[in-house]
Amino acid sequence: MGISEQCHCDEVTVQNSLGLHARPASQLVKLALTFEAEILFEKDGESVSAKSLMGLLMLSAGCGTVLKISATGDDGRTALEAMVELINRKFDEE
């Protein structure tokens, strides 16, 4: 794995009351699609692409769920920070 392929990881807790329902999930997908990096969300050993709405919905991440996020690629670090920030901002819902 080269330096550019370095994997950036972080953990984040879903804090908005309704969890990753359709609107927050689609906000995440929209944001993920602006990056080159491969971004994965992992919950209970199951991992899905952040660029797939269906995948995110399948995670069924309600409020309080801890998600592991990993981003691999040139803009991996920025991507990871952006994803974490959006989740911590509670998707501007509350």
């Binding site: 609107r23 689609s26 906000q27 709405l53 269906m54």
Partner: peptide, 19 residues
């Protein structure tokens, strides 16, 4: 705009790379 965003979800299903 909030509700229209839900509509975006429909579009995203059509664009879903994984799918």
């Amino acid at each position: 705009e909030r509700e229209a965003n839900v509509f975006d979800a429909h579009l995203m299903i059509v664009d879903d790379k994984m799918l």
